[in-house]
Design a protein around this nucleic acid. Structure first.
Lengths: 159, 159
DNA sequence: ATGATAATGTTATATTATAACGTTTCAATT
DNA sequence: AATTGAAACGTTATAATATAACATTATCAT
């Protein structure tokens, strides 16, 4: 089944992709477990981050919040920081943007495939890549701690 | 010779590391080959980027330039853009900072090891990593084009 | 109910980067 | 040497991203 190979970019059906309602449920559950408050702002920001399956900028989130009432940058950044600490959201450094974590539960650095054409993003968690990184680092006497891996290119639909 | 394994973080002797004067010479030569102008601003910015073997921010470069005369942000960003296009400087997305390219000649995306303690940076060009990325991307039907790989951790001296 | 802690509101500002437009420099040709 | 067209640079303003600092409110454990 060829399509299954592309599930990194698909959503909902048949995969481990978590969509907006599911993402919120998982978040709620994880926060409860960890005795952290999943406040309405945090929930709303998580929803907005998941709203498109593309990275979203902090100020785009802010705009959306402002249409529902007052809000200022710190509100957004605090919520995003919290969600990142909970491992529910990743920051994409090369885009200054944020995306919902596809594999929450255990905090981790993801690896990201980002389509230069349609801006869609898929999160990988390829041990193959992590291992290659770890081994190469080791050979330089370097002890890796955190990795940023962001691959720009063309997604299956756009290539 | 254990130290040779660590040459990614060393400088000058016995390795392919290029230090400030060498970097300028190589740059001069490459620009001449490509019929590009290696102006005094571009030279000076390249020197400043190489001055420490650590990533440097655009505004730090600016400050240095301003101590030698007038300068404004566009001056720095233009020079940095040019140097990046020539493959002489890399931008480190996770730091919003710039670093001299250790392997100029053919433009490429490097992979970077960044020490969280002393801020030293080493550039890798590990085929092992690129291959792992390419294969993982392939399996998702993704055609990679450009990669950002930035590993934070502890360098040999600080670990 | 009370007090401690965490979360949020609010204002201001820091940091990084680019837009827009006029001027200068440079090198190729006349 | 003068001309000219393109590239580089100067300058001012502003955009885009992110944080500092401090007052206020909400929540939880007692």
């Amino acid at each position: 089944m060829k399509h299954s190979e592309h599930r990194a970019f698909s959503c909902n059906k048949g995969g481990h992709q978590i969509c907006i309602a599911e993402a919120v449920q998982v978040a709620e559950s994880l926060c409860r477990q960890r005795k952290q408050r999943f406040t309405s702002i945090r929930r709303r920001v998580l929803e907005l981050v998941w709203h498109q399956h593309k990275p979203i900028g902090a100020y785009q989130v802010l705009e959306a919040l402002q249409q529902e009432g007052r809000a200022a940058p710190p509100t957004v950044y605090r919520a995003l920081d919290f969600l990142q600490q909970m491992g529910l959201v990743h920051r994409i450094a090369s885009l200054n943007a944020y995306v919902g974590c596809a594999h929450p539960g255990a905090p981790h650095d993801g690896q990201f495939l980002i389509c230069e054409s349609c801006k869609a993003l898929a999160e990988l968690d390829a041990a193959e890549i992590s291992n290659a990184i770890e081994q190469s680092a080791d050979r330089s006497g370097f002890k890796p701690h955190r990795q940023t891996v962001e691959i720009m290119g063309l997604c299956p639909r756009c290539r």
